[in-house]
Write a protein that binds this DNA or RNA. Sequence first.
DNA 1: CTGTTAGCGCCTTCAC
DNA 2: GTGAAGGCGCTAACAG
Lengths: 337, 337
Amino acid sequence: MVQKRVNIRDVAARAGVSVGTVSRVINRKPVSAETLALVNRAMREIGFTPSAVARSMRTRSTLAVGFVINDISNMLFATVAKAAEKVLQEQSYSLLIANTDNDPGRERLIIESLIQRRVDGLMIAVTDETDEETRSLLRSVDFPVTLLDRQMDGPFDSVCDDHAPGMRKAIRYLFDLGHRDIGLITGADNVRPGRERARGFREAFAEQGLDVPERWLRQGRLDALYGYAQAFEILSASPRPTALVAGGNQIFAGVLRAIRRLGLVLPRDLSIISCDDVDLTVLTDPPVTVISRNLDEVGRVAAEILLRRIRGNEAGERYCHVVPTELILRESCAQVR
Amino acid sequence: MVQKRVNIRDVAARAGVSVGTVSRVINRKPVSAETLALVNRAMREIGFTPSAVARSMRTRSTLAVGFVINDISNMLFATVAKAAEKVLQEQSYSLLIANTDNDPGRERLIIESLIQRRVDGLMIAVTDETDEETRSLLRSVDFPVTLLDRQMDGPFDSVCDDHAPGMRKAIRYLFDLGHRDIGLITGADNVRPGRERARGFREAFAEQGLDVPERWLRQGRLDALYGYAQAFEILSASPRPTALVAGGNQIFAGVLRAIRRLGLVLPRDLSIISCDDVDLTVLTDPPVTVISRNLDEVGRVAAEILLRRIRGNEAGERYCHVVPTELILRESCAQVR
DNA sequence: CTGTTAGCGCCTTCAC
DNA sequence: GTGAAGGCGCTAACAG
């Protein structure tokens, strides 16, 4: 593997031109037709591939942006990454995807590694918005950073989802069906989706002049295990709420498990609403009403914002793009008897 | 952003030592305690971060490996990537994940970009094993390549799943329940999982001296749309098979959709087996019998093999690690009346 | 349009 | 244990 790699100089020698000319060919700068042919042939013959490493060294641009995600197993990630990659690839940028697994320590290591690799920009869904170490690390970087559905103090752009209004719509819908005893299981306040969903939940009750059913509002983590544990507890209570909102797609998987375990029949015994439209919500029986959002837009816009910053080199106003949510009605909610 | 970055020389000046000494500190080579302290302080004070680009240039190693996947939306990918990343991160390698979306053209561009970036190794689930362009591209690289559940002629290691034996077990199980009219929907022959599953299917019938129900063996793509279309067609037939195997986790989502659409009740009207254990198979009603495999092992072993090659620089025997499959019995299959 | 040359930031000899 | 110098492969001036 450590064999001598052919370089621009070898090509130049072979083609009988100077290295500058070869460089021009590589970078599609104006070159006479015949030298172009000459150089191209030489490159092919000796199997030359320009080194992005050397180029980056010279140009101080890696044409790479980092994508740091706190949980790669969440299938929603794929949609966002795909959309972002599409935009970036068109501009010949590559995506360096890394997964922190909700571990702030790993998150820091990953960010540091990305800094050393001299990425041109960074998209990140931080594990914990209140983590001071991560925050100061991100503030110290000299490339643009776009937060993915996160809010942090600092010179960061962000693309966020409209969780609170979405949740309000969902709760109002349940109100309309006569529900008052409603539960919500979602993430903690240190991460935007959990915080905003809880806020929307509270606001919906406040709007109606109703007390928030605090004992059925559970904020902890966004994973399935948490969803299962909390749902099991809530639904084992007596009386239990007449409706339950799963504040996260993975939480929903846990909630569903608890429902099966307890032998509850939807929507007769319980009305359910989930967040984000995934196979499970459509294919379970009955299909589940969800608060949906356009994840594709999140990835696309995040990439676009980042590119604009990288290109424009602007230090201007921070962008904060908000992606709307939509309530998709299906058959998991029933009128209260 | 193009501000002057501090470099090793600035640190050296600040610390009153030579650049060589700073380099030694960075690379944890023996240095006297006091210079160490001196240099470390200088680095901190002027905010120095070593450039991986420059280092790669010099050492001809990027400490990066590519991970090219044909469909990032397949949630199974996450498990593999996570396991691989874990192994690699421990050795301070980074993963460059890229998605081809089953587009051979993009695949080529991605591989070329990875070559230019001078990755130290590559893990790849190619879109089409018979694609000559991709194959010759991969043969031409000067770093080790590990195939993920793929087979191709060439100097490639691979980690494969035991699909055919798994499928045989599944079919035999259905035989035991009295089924003879069994369908299978899976990927085409140009990609290992589809090919092997179909092979296992055929072998199972051959073992029993039975004719293979060719009209119910559908090989096309591994996505949900294909699964839906084929399942709908198969299950609309009259008579329809008494059992159907979804040869892929995404195909299963499509199959389930068709089942719902046709109003079939499992397992009364139809017995079902799927591949790979995901939320959907566990949480649907009834829970579905699956051919399962350890995806974590796939990622882990693939990364280990790659590291060994990179480290060892060996040109020896090709590895071909086979990961076993297991039939997990649940309630989606019934005795034929 | 083309050749020449000076680094980009770092590591690695080789002296000391 | 430390300093000095050369070069990894490329691009960006600057001359011609």
